[in-house]
Computed example of a mutant assay.
Amino acid sequence: MIRMNAAQPPWRRVATALEQRIEDGTYAKGSRLPGAVPLSHEFNVAPSTVAKAVQDLKRRGLVTASPGWGTFVL
């Protein structure tokens, strides 16, 4: 079970959960992340919130996006 800090903004909680999944191998290097809509349903947030979380992961060099292909773990 992923513990999330309720004091963090929702996008940060999603980014933290995705980062944990990358670190524990749930999303292995080279694997594609689920899309924003499925993740938004899973985390009960708007797709734009997921997009902001993924942008944070990109900024930190954890994932890369290929337009038309998806977002992949680095």
Rank of each mutant, 00 (worst) to 15 (best):
V37S: 06
E23I: 00
P10E: 10
D24Y: 05
P34D: 12
K52G: 07
V14L: 15
S31G: 04
A17K: 11
R13L: 15
A53H: 10
N44S: 15
N5R: 09
K29H: 12
F43Y: 14
G35S: 10
W69R: 15
A6C: 02
R59F: 13
L57W: 10
P67A: 00
M1C: 01
V63R: 03
L62I: 01
F72V: 03
P47N: 03
A51N: 08
V37R: 10
E19K: 13
A36N: 08
V63F: 07
G70E: 08
G68S: 00
L39A: 04
R3L: 12
H41I: 01
V54T: 10
Y27F: 12
G25R: 06
A17M: 12
Y27W: 11
R13V: 11
T71Y: 10
P38N: 05
A46G: 01
N5Y: 07
E42I: 07
I22R: 01
H41Y: 05
A15G: 12
L74C: 02
A51F: 05
V50Y: 15
V54K: 11
N44C: 05
V54Y: 10
E42T: 08
T26M: 04
S48Y: 01
V14H: 09
G70W: 05
N5D: 12
V45Q: 00
P38S: 04
A15Q: 15
